[in-house]
Write a protein that binds this DNA or RNA. Structure first.
Length: 262
DNA sequence: CCTAATGTTTGTGC
DNA sequence: AGCACAAACATTAG
């Protein structure tokens, strides 16, 4: 689930429910999602403090801890993570791994597979270091920047757009959706595209990201590819052709052989 | 029992 | 260096 759009939704959950509220306590049901620190340290850091306005970089959620000198909680959701707000008294879910309690309810990190989790960072430099080699956020990148970063790559579009060090935030569903809406074949090599074609790709990417971020997910609308990708006999909502399903760049890929080329 | 899953990392080989 | 591919991580659903 968690790609740029989902993480943007989780960022809003934190911003709307938790920012500025004093943290009463932290319950760690499964310390496996704490990466590089103990439950004790997390409690000591957060109790009595609060979160400041959170930001997002690619698929990372960055929550500054106010009142602590330059401390940040970083969250990466892997393939199955989520951040949910629960009013007080709501029964916990089987996969709620961490709960941060505050007035009126609690923020829960829910994650079935635990491929990623929570990270702690100090100042801005430390945050940058922990995020690793991340390209510019896909939502902020300009057309010229996109061309500059991808134009000379010989990799397939599917692979290049999914590469977080090139562009941060796009995941499997978003990449397929963008390529379908822009009518590019996922196997096309990036270097084969003219600057003009990149401008077109950029425009489509912006539209897809704006609508997805607003929805807090890649919307499975009937007019979108994402609304049909799970149906093995799904048809292209634009032309009615049976959609192709395959593995490109080691990922399940869905595309229209008519609109995007075989 | 087997397969696949919206992510990342690491290793191998060309 | 850049790229493709496979495996591993952990867990559940079908």
């Amino acid at each position: 689930m968690p790609e740029l759009s989902d993480v943007e939704g989780f960022r809003r959950v934190l911003a709307e429910h938790a920012v500025g509220k004093p943290i009463d306590d932290v319950d760690v049901a499964d310390a496996q999602v704490l990466r590089g620190f103990s439950a004790k340290r997390l409690r000591e850091l957060l109790r009595g403090r609060s979160f400041a306005e959170p930001s997002r970089r690619g698929k990372w959620l960055i929550a500054p801890v106010s009142g602590a000198d330059e401390a940040h909680l970083l969250v990466h959701f892997g393939m199955t993570g989520a951040l949910v707000w629960a009013e007080r008294g709501q029964q916990r879910h089987q996969h709620d791994r961490v709960a941060v309690r505050m007035d009126g309810g609690e923020l829960r990190y829910r994650d079935m597979r635990k491929l990623k989790g929570l990270y702690l960072a100090g100042d801005a430099d430390d945050v940058a270091e922990q995020l690793g080699e991340l390209g510019p956020d896909a939502f902020d990148v300009s057309a010229a920047q996109l061309y500059g970063r991808l134009g000379e790559r010989s990799a397939q579009l599917k692979s290049a757009l999914s590469d977080q060090s090139v562009l941060a935030g796009l995941g499997n569903l978003l990449v397929d959706e963008i390529l379908w809406q822009a009518r590019f074949n996922p196997r096309t090599r990036a270097t084969e595209l003219t600057e003009q074609r990149f401008t077109s790709l950029h425009k489509t990417m912006r539209t897809v990201l704006r609508q997805s971020a607003k929805a807090g997910r890649v919307p499975p609308w009937p007019s979108w590819l994402t609304g049909h990708r799970d149906d093995p006999s799904g048809e292209c909502p634009r032309c009615g052709t049976r959609l192709s399903h395959g593995r490109i760049s080691s990922r399940t890929t869905v595309w229209c052989p008519h609109c995007q080329g075989a």
